[in-house]
């Protein structure tokens, strides 16, 4: 079936078998391998992308369900000129170690900051509870998200 999406602002489409998940479509049909397959059943969060403004496990969403939707993946965060504040802060803090949880983690964090620009530590923990990380103990990730929020607020203020 033909599935058309807006991915990271570009319109993309592919003819996929109907049972294709959004994750598979992104990775295998659109060449966007940022979102990862870690468990394939919605437990680990490595496949997290934003669909029409909310984060979802793309391993559980059929591609057909996302037809006509606006999808943001990790590849859509930076521009040709600068990193997203989350990417910058994650790098500065050494918040990612093996990095496999990173794309999903950053997308969940972005989804949080989009709706709650000044989250508390608890709110960050709550927002990231669907993204398992085995390396970091989440500590530096949480620090980075909070600082990225502050940075985005300052940027907003100076605009």
């Amino acid at each position: 079936m033909l599935v058309e999406l807006t991915v990271n602002g570009e319109s993309r489409s592919a003819n996929v078998p109907p049972e294709t998940t959004l994750l598979k479509m992104l990775r295998e049909y659109l060449g966007l391998t940022g979102a990862k397959l870690g468990c394939d059943v919605g437990d680990c969060g490595t496949c997290t992308v934003i669909v029409d403004g909310v984060s979802v496990n793309s391993c559980l969403m059929l591609a057909g369900r996302a037809d006509g939707c606006d999808v943001t993946t990790i590849e859509g965060l930076a521009t040709a000129d600068e990193l997203h504040p989350l990417q910058q802060k994650f790098e500065e803090h050494g918040a990612l170690q093996c990095g496999f949880c990173g794309p999903g983690m950053l997308i969940s964090a972005k989804n949080l900051l989009d709706t709650n620009p000044e989250p508390s530590v608890f709110e960050v923990r709550d927002a990231l509870a669907g993204n398992l990380c085995r390396c970091t103990g989440y500590t530096k990730i949480i620090e980075a998200v909070i600082e990225a929020g502050e940075m985005m607020n300052q940027e907003q203020a100076t605009v």
Binding site: C39, D43, L132, G137
Partner: peptide
Amino acid sequence: PNLTNYIMPTSLDMPDI
């Protein structure tokens, strides 16, 4: 043998360090 029933810590389960 899955991450639903093998219970590893999430961000909500970790203390301040």
